[in-house]
Design a protein around this nucleic acid. Structure first.
Lengths: 229, 229
DNA sequence: CCAAAAGTGTTCGTGTTACACCCATGT
DNA sequence: ACATGGGTGTAACACGAACACTTTTGG
């Protein structure tokens, strides 16, 4: 069944264009950052946008997200989650484009690798100092950050941003930076450990001129809904 | 700017079709029900679907939802909220249709009015006994119910289902039916009242052969995010 | 006067918060 | 030896859960 045959039945309908836009978030040097690309369309010169692309005729939305991430940023195997769909007529000056927005979280590791790729400029920007952006992408990023903050306290979504192995202090700093306020060290450890979502790897992080820290990993590969903090 | 002109720039792109599907929920006789229509397409004979329709070229998604609700069910002025977007190729056997699903909540009042309209059959069905359904609509309804349950405890979304004026017992029964378990009367009242989201209207519900109940209303017209229960 | 639902406080246990010092390492 | 971040317990408090009787009306 080809796409053309499949859409026959709706031939008279005015078709829209469907895109996916991916808000890639990471914590870099203690700040929550978003990955932005500079568009090369002359009409939007100088404006930044979240990486995105059109959905191919026989491609699922998730597949489109993976493809866009891989081709436009070099990122693969990223934890993604659907955010919301933005469809105001006029949100794209070139036509009626409906955008299904996704959140993607990447490890502190992968950052440096991800920044060098593709044709137009690509860079990390702190979410609290966004540049002028194309379309409604500023609103999309704001929505994504809101959602991430909310999820952080009742899911194990942090798994997406933390490296494979991490120290409890790294994890706590991640929470503090995303939530925007400090947390008590002893209480944080008590809650996270008693939730049973992470376990010691047995290894240690050494090298700093201080006591070595125990390394932990998440016990599961899935994002669980569980009350933390 | 006509739609045709606007989409010029993307003329070579395979266009998809964008639809909205609305999961209309209400509590009827103590059970959570969903409003379903029976499709008249011969290929899907006998299957039920959630009311939905294609998005017009210059119509926002929200506007499409309102229009679909009004023309297919007679409902107007309904509290709606975007749920998620379903876009698997093959979810619609007739073509590539991307569906933006919405939740709509209607007052216990409006129910009876809503059921009589439009060409094909339309009826309320308990969400825990869904009939055979077309497309992926069963999954959409399940997702909607999950979301409603979750929202109930931390937002004032119940406002959408309750009538303008209601008794605390009615409100409590609503929560019990949607959550699927009973609640303590005194604790429920304490929490809801101390949250400050509702106020006495000064009127009473009389007529039952028992003590009259004070009537309440929500203090605001918006769905607020606040910790209840 | 009886049935039916409305309304109202207190106790107890659990979970959350606030808080300060010793430990292991690298330089 | 000292600077640096890692690691640990306890007491006060607030919050949530459990629980039963009196009040007001309609019939």
């Amino acid at each position: 069944m080809t796409p053309t045959k499949k859409t026959q039945k709706y031939a008279r309908v005015e078709h829209a264009i469907v895109a996916v836009d991916v808000v890639v978030l990471s914590v870099i040097e203690g700040r929550l950052n978003v990955l932005l690309t500079q568009t090369n369309k002359p009409e939007l010169k100088g404006l930044w946008a979240v990486p995105g692309g059109l959905v191919a005729p026989d491609e699922s939305l998730d597949a489109a997200v993976s493809r866009v991430l891989a081709t436009k940023t070099g990122l693969t195997n990223v934890l993604t989650e659907q955010l919301a769909t933005f469809g105001d007529p006029g949100r794209d000056p070139f036509g009626r484009v409906i955008s299904v927005a996704y959140i993607a979280l990447v490890h502190a590791d992968a950052q440096t690798l991800a920044t060098t790729r593709e044709y137009d400029a690509i860079a990390w920007r702190p979410v609290d100092h966004l540049p002028r952006m194309a379309y409604d992408h500023k609103e999309i990023v704001r929505t994504a950050v809101q959602r991430l903050r909310a999820r952080l306290t009742y899911t194990t979504i942090a798994r997406g941003i933390l490296a494979e192995e991490f120290t409890l202090t790294e994890m706590q700093e991640l929470y503090e930076h995303i939530l925007g306020h400090t947390l008590d060290k002893r209480n944080f450890r008590k809650k996270i450990l008693s939730a049973g979502i992470i376990e010691k790897t047995g290894r240690q992080r050494r090298g700093q001129r201080s006591r070595p820290a125990a390394l932990y990993r998440f016990r599961t590969n899935t994002t669980q809904i569980i009350d933390l903090l």
